[in-house]
């Protein structure tokens, strides 16, 4: 039991979504709150509070102040909470392992209301960004992606294992909002990218590239083999390419000794027919 609690405590540090470092995050992209009107807002806060109390407070504390099991969420902003909940990372059954993407527990409205409730507890942090892809330049996005994202997520977005049992998750199946949130908040092990490193326009471009071309890669050449590159290609080349050719060699080079029992090509002897007799003089005996 002690081991488990220890692991949980460790994990709460490991997977802290920047609890202690909500710095100049306010100067972030052209984000607007996703909420519509005041009465809706109040209703959402109320719903968010209920959901938070039921699903999140056991680890993060009743006022999101954090506990041994989960980090402080105050001041993180709606964007961070939205990312962690909408991606299915939260709620987390076992805090000792890196959360993986799974179907979200809450629908879009519920997620937004939780995020807004947490954001209402303390100022600061990133609001839920609203991404407008009109006019986005996916070529610029590709370029920025290759410089800043591909080192961990791979250039095809397949994701890969990092050191210490962590990993950069696959980008297949992410939403535009999640990409924007992740770039700005740097969830878990991911660095955060400021507006200097990736400008608001560039962020839109990156989101455009990820949601259009990483999500739906152009693969006119056939099966894409998971986008993991030469490793998978090598296996296909060896086991399918060389393998099939060797099987063909097996067919071509196999001796024909089964084919003819009696030396008369046209004889339609059924399988299991007469055993070869010694009556034919030209047949040598082994």
């Amino acid at each position: 039991m002690g081991v488990v609690v220890g692991a949980l405590a460790l994990a709460s540090v490991l997977f802290s979504p920047h609890a202690a470092t909500a710095g100049p995050g306010a100067s972030l992209s052209s984000a607007v709150l996703a909420s519509a009107s005041a009465p809706n807002h109040r209703a959402a806060l109320s719903l968010g509070r209920t959901l938070f109390d039921e699903n999140c407070s056991s680890c993060h504390g009743v006022s999101a102040q954090g506990s041994a099991l989960g980090p402080n969420l105050r001041g993180l902003g709606a964007g961070t909470v939205d990312l962690w909940v909408s991606s299915g990372w939260m709620p987390l059954a076992n805090p000792a392992i890196q959360p993986i993407r799974k179907p979200a527990l809450f629908d879009r409205a519920q997620t937004t209301s939780i995020a807004q409730y947490v954001a209402s507890l303390a100022p600061g942090g990133l609001p839920i960004p609203k991404v407008d892809l009109a006019g986005a330049n996916s070529a610029e996005g590709f370029s920025v992606f290759a410089l800043n994202c591909a080192p961990c997520h791979t250039v095809t977005g397949a994701g890969d294992a990092l050191a210490d049992g962590l990993s950069a998750p696959s980008l297949h199946g992410v939403t535009a909002t999640q990409v924007a949130e992740a770039v700005r908040t740097g969830p878990g092990n991911m660095p955060r990218f400021s507006t200097f490193t990736i400008s608001p326009t560039q962020l839109t471009d990156v989101v455009d590239y990820v949601t259009k071309h990483i999500e739906h890669p152009s693969s006119p050449g056939g099966l894409s083999l998971g986008g993991v590159g030469p490793v998978a290609e090598g296996f296909v080349g060896l086991f399918v390419g060389v393998g099939v050719c060797v099987l063909i060699a097996l067919w071509i080079g196999d001796r024909n000794e089964r084919e003819d029992t009696d030396g008369h090509g046209d004889a339609h002897s059924p399988p299991g027919g007469e055993p070869p007799s010694g009556s034919e003089p030209e047949v040598a005996h082994a």
Binding site: H18, T21, P24, G186, P191, R192, S194, F196, T197
Partner: peptide, 10 residues
């Protein structure tokens, strides 16, 4: 002030 804590740039 261009880079936040936890940020990286080439």
């Amino acid at each position: 002030d261009d880079i936040e804590v936890g940020g990286i740039i080439t």
